[in-house]
């Protein structure tokens, strides 16, 4: 276990070394936050209580979206391109030789990354947003840890999806296509552009049941106090269920792929 703690710490420090990139990223998040905030204000002016949110809840949604954009890798990114590249060049063979589990290794590294992005890329835009706009901040202290747990589960689901995408590189010649599709799906189904509550009818129901809703929609609703008591437990079970299912599929693909590398040489 201590190995994976060192890996996670490395994941954290690795991103922490790029200070300028972090500053530029915070700036971008903030600009996007403002653009989306004014768009949402206009929208909620016309249709108050859209999706069951009042204006200040909608604005909270916007700024949490910016705060979690990198943390939960809503549009992908983080480690897949690196892993895909290792698979493509055959460097993956070196990883296999180590006495460590591939999936746990990358999960630990990604959790380290997410922790950095939450602090480095999430806190600043959120604070700025809260200063400028009237956000719906939690009334109870306990909402904060409840929210963080939901974010954590969301990051694990996000990792599990991206790990599947990366694993596809063992079979597809070019991992870029899969990564682009995953990015589009993430953009749309995480609720980054519009809350999934706004999606009408069947589309909305499907979108809310897909794993991507664990990344943003669920944590935001926890933050806004929409899930409490058993509702909160259900939300966690939903997230953890997807996490386990997707991690399981990833593990299966990893086993098949490893066998192939060991026989075919990648």
């Amino acid at each position: 276990m201590r190995l994976y703690a060192v890996v996670a710490a490395g994941g954290f420090r690795r991103y922490a070394t790029y200070r300028t990139a972090t500053a530029a990223g915070v700036f971008t998040n903030t600009v996007f936050g403002f653009i989306m905030a004014y768009t949402y204000i206009a929208l909620w002016d016309v249709r108050p209580q859209l999706g069951g949110y009042d204006t200040s809840q909608a604005l909270t949604y916007v700024w949490l979206g910016q705060a979690l954009l990198m943390t939960s890798a809503l549009m992908g990114g983080g480690f897949e391109s690196e892993l895909v590249e290792r698979i493509r060049t055959g460097d993956i063979a070196v990883d296999l030789y180590r006495p460590a589990d591939l999936q746990l290794w990358w999960l630990a590294a990604d959790l380290g990354r997410a922790a950095f992005h939450l602090l480095g890329r999430g806190v600043a835009p959120m604070c700025l947003g809260a200063l400028v706009f009237d956000l719906a901040l939690p009334g109870s202290f306990w909402t904060w840890p409840a929210f963080l747990l939901s974010v954590f589960l969301g990051v694990v689901v996000s990792f599990a999806i991206r790990y599947l995408v990366a694993m596809s590189a063992f079979w597809l010649l070019d991992g870029a296509g899969a990564m682009q599709m995953a990015m589009l799906a993430g953009l749309f189904f995480s609720g980054m552009l519009l809350p999934l509550n706004l999606f009408p009818g069947l589309l909305g129901e499907v979108a809310r049941a897909l794993p991507w809703s664990s990344l943003l929609q669920v944590p935001v609703d926890v933050f806004l106090g929409k899930h409490t008591g058993w509702g909160l437990v259900e939300a966690y079970v939903f997230q953890a269920g997807w996490a386990l299912a997707l991690l399981g599929v990833g593990r299966l693909l990893q086993t098949v792929a490893t066998r192939r590398v060991v026989v075919q040489g990648g």
């Binding site: 070196v94 030789y97 590398v261 060991v262 026989v263 040489g265």
Partner: peptide, 12 residues
């Protein structure tokens, strides 16, 4: 390299 990889176990 193929020999080395077999000696490490990353190739059968």
């Amino acid at each position: 390299s193929t020999t080395i990889k077999m000696l490490t176990g990353i190739l059968t």
